[in-house]
Computed example of a mutant assay.
Amino acid sequence: MYKPFLEYLEKELFSRFDLSSKPIPAGLEANVSNRGKNQATIQSWCYECPQLRKIRYTYIDAGASAQVFNSVIYPSYYYDIPLLGIDLLSFGKSKILIVLDFQPLFQEESYLEKYIEPMRPLREKYNDLAQKLEMKFYDANQYFSKYLLFAKTDAETVKTTFFEAYQEYINLYWEMLDKAEILDRTEDIQKIIKAQKDYDQYSADRDPASGLFSSYFGHEWSEKFLYEFLFEDAVPLAVPNATR
Rank of each mutant, 00 (worst) to 15 (best):
Y143F: 14
L105K: 03
I98L: 09
A155Q: 14
F102Y: 07
K152Q: 11
F137Y: 15
N141A: 07
A66V: 08
P82V: 11
K93N: 13
R120G: 04
E117R: 13
G92W: 09
L88T: 08
M135Q: 13
Y115P: 03
K114Y: 00
Y78R: 14
N70H: 11
Y138E: 10
D139T: 04
D139A: 10
A66N: 12
T58V: 13
L133I: 14
I81W: 05
Y126V: 05
R56M: 11
R123W: 13
Q103R: 06
K54Y: 12
I81R: 15
A62L: 06
F150H: 15
L112P: 01
K136S: 08
L148S: 08
K114R: 06
S94A: 13
D87L: 13
I55L: 09
T157N: 06
K125W: 02
K125Y: 00
K125C: 07
P82Y: 13
N141R: 09
Y74T: 09
R123Y: 14
D139F: 01
Y59S: 05
I96F: 01
I73L: 15
T58W: 02
D87K: 05
S90P: 05
F102V: 00
P75A: 10
R56D: 11
D80Q: 15
P118C: 12
T153Q: 08
L122R: 05
S76R: 09
Y138G: 08
E108A: 15
L100E: 03
K146F: 00
E108C: 09
E156D: 12
P82I: 11
T157E: 04
G85P: 01
D128K: 04
T58C: 02
Q107R: 13
S94I: 10
K136T: 12
R56W: 10
Y143W: 01
Q131D: 06
I60E: 01
V72N: 08
K146D: 05
I98A: 08
Q67A: 14
G85N: 04
L129T: 01
R56K: 09
A130R: 03
K146Q: 07
Q142L: 14
Y77R: 08
Y79V: 13
L105M: 12
A66L: 15
Y126P: 11
T58A: 04
Y111Q: 08
Q142M: 11
T153K: 09
L133T: 10
V68S: 02
L148F: 11
K95P: 03
Q103H: 00
L148Y: 09
S110F: 10
K146M: 07
D80H: 06
G63F: 04
R56A: 13
L148T: 01
Q142G: 06
I81V: 12
T157F: 01
F102L: 04
D80K: 14
R120T: 06
Y111V: 12
M135I: 05
R120L: 05
T153L: 08
L112A: 07
K93M: 06
F144P: 10
D61A: 10
L100P: 05
L133A: 06
V99H: 15
S90R: 03
A155H: 11
L129F: 12
D139W: 02
I96V: 15
G85F: 00
V99C: 14
R56N: 11
L97R: 05
Q131P: 03
V68K: 00
T153H: 05
M119V: 02
F91G: 03
L122Q: 09
S71P: 07
D80V: 02
T58H: 02
Y59V: 06
